[in-house]
Amino acid sequence: MTRAMEKYLRGGLGGTAFCPGCGHGILLGALLRAVDRIGIHQDDLLFVSGIGCAAWIPSPNIGADTLHTLHGRAVAFATGAKIASPKMTTIVVSGDGDISSIGGNHLIHAARRDTDLTVICANNQIYGMTGGQTACTTPVGARTATDPAGNPHRPFDLCQLVIGAGARYAARYPITRPPMLVDAIEKAIRTPGFTFVEAISPCPTQFGRRNDTPDVGDLYEKVEALCIDRENAESMTFDERLKHFVIGEFRP
């Protein structure tokens, strides 16, 4: 992260809790740049997160109000906080397991209600904090602690999920492309109503090491190689798309 963003960090932080090569720190940087561009005062920002490595992106790092909640429930807490205090720009940042597995019902209902929240899902395609178990976002065939022979199930397409539920804005970008991610987060925060950004944030420790990419550089290159713009993915079959990260803005 550049020094310019340090003004948004909380004083008294000891250091980062993220593993070397974790994408979550890059996402933190992208988030702060977006906030900086919009120019929201720190006192008017509330960050809500659940439980998991990704839930530590805002809490305690960001020098604003941070509400670190229960596994899966960040969106529900944020809904209450926002409705009770509409002046606060309320941003949920949490993991794929947190937001879309245990918390999936809260996610779709917040989208349906069009509550004025921005939800940023740090998707590392695995349960990082608990030791690399399969998530509802794990690709077909990927090896995990609970699917050592490869995950037999398909992952959620989170952007399509929230669009189906009524999201005003939905985009997906990898942390390997920070400028796009910053743009998307900025647009999501600026758009009133329920907005969603999925950040592909690779996990070298739990995912890479189990899936032939123990080296961080190799893992990031693999993510890059799997990214395909939504326009170019249109001609693909459904099963082909599942093997890629289809990136771009999906709504509006």
């Binding site: 529900a76 209450g80 809260h106």
Partner: peptide, 20 residues
């Protein structure tokens, strides 16, 4: 606000209380 279930309800209540 009518929430989607009781878990969401109690979480929303705690969030609202945090807002003062």
């Amino acid at each position: 606000i009518q929430m989607e279930d009781e878990i969401a309800s109690i979480c929303a209540v705690i969030g609202a209380s945090g807002s003062g």
